[in-house]
């Protein structure tokens, strides 16, 4: 565990808490992509099956359980409790366009051809593109609430910090996981445009809106 990894995890945790807080306080999930949230639940479920097979630390187990539980709770809020506020018309990205190719790739490019390993690889690839329905939704409506942009910024920061973590681990621990690194870089690149808008607009007190 290094400082980048810890900050990355905290940023990820913060993102989830911001999202839950936004929904709970406003009693609304407007502007949030249910598709992205379903994909995240799938990511956590397929990656953390190792909860049953290997123990790393109390920290690791606790975080995994929280990520899984919060992702399903988010889906419950969006599709049940606050269903009336869910903006499904603008959430039109097709999940199968991500899940199917990513599933195929996980079968072809993995560290080891074992069920748990393929599922882990699937979750890594899927996580890298799971934000696309949300970004698509923002671009379709042309705007995002400020709280939603804070959520996206925290989520993007998490992946950026993980890249620093991998650089650190490569030099100081001799650790290098090509699959995680490539997917993590792709994931971070997807946020670049958003980071630019966040810094130039939201941090200056303006709402995040896209030019027509």
């Amino acid at each position: 565990m290094n400082v980048f990894r810890l900050l990355g995890d905290m940023s990820h945790l913060l993102a989830i808490l911001i999202l839950l807080l936004k929904m709970w306080k406003t009693r609304s999930c407007a502007g949030i992509s249910g598709k992205t949230q379903i994909l995240f639940a799938l990511v956590f479920t397929t990656r953390y099956l190792d909860l049953f097979s290997s123990f790393i630390s109390i920290y690791n187990t606790t975080m995994k359980l929280f990520f899984i539980a919060s992702s399903y709770f988010t889906i419950f809020l969006m599709y049940s409790k606050f269903k009336a506020t869910y903006d499904s018309n603008h959430d039109s990205f097709r999940m199968e366009f991500l899940v199917v190719p990513v599933g195929g790739l996980a079968f072809l490019v993995n560290h080891e051809f074992l069920p748990l390993e393929i599922l882990w690889t699937f979750s890594i690839y899927l996580e890298s593109v799971a934000i696309l329905p949300q970004l698509f939704m923002v671009s379709k409506t042309g705007e995002a609430e400020t709280i939603t942009s804070h959520y996206l910024f925290a989520l993007g920061s998490y992946r950026l910090l993980y890249i620093f973590n991998w650089v650190y681990r490569y030099y100081f621990d001799g650790f290098f996981d090509l699959i995680a690194v490539v997917a993590g870089c792709v994931q971070t690149i997807l946020y670049c445009d958003f980071f630019y808008l966040y810094i130039t607009k939201v941090l200056k007190g303006k709402k995040l809106s896209l030019p027509a």
Partner: peptide, 10 residues
């Protein structure tokens, strides 16, 4: 490491 290595990250 890295080839089917232990996945200790979240």
């Amino acid at each position: 490491n890295g080839v089917g290595g232990k996945h200790d990250e979240l």
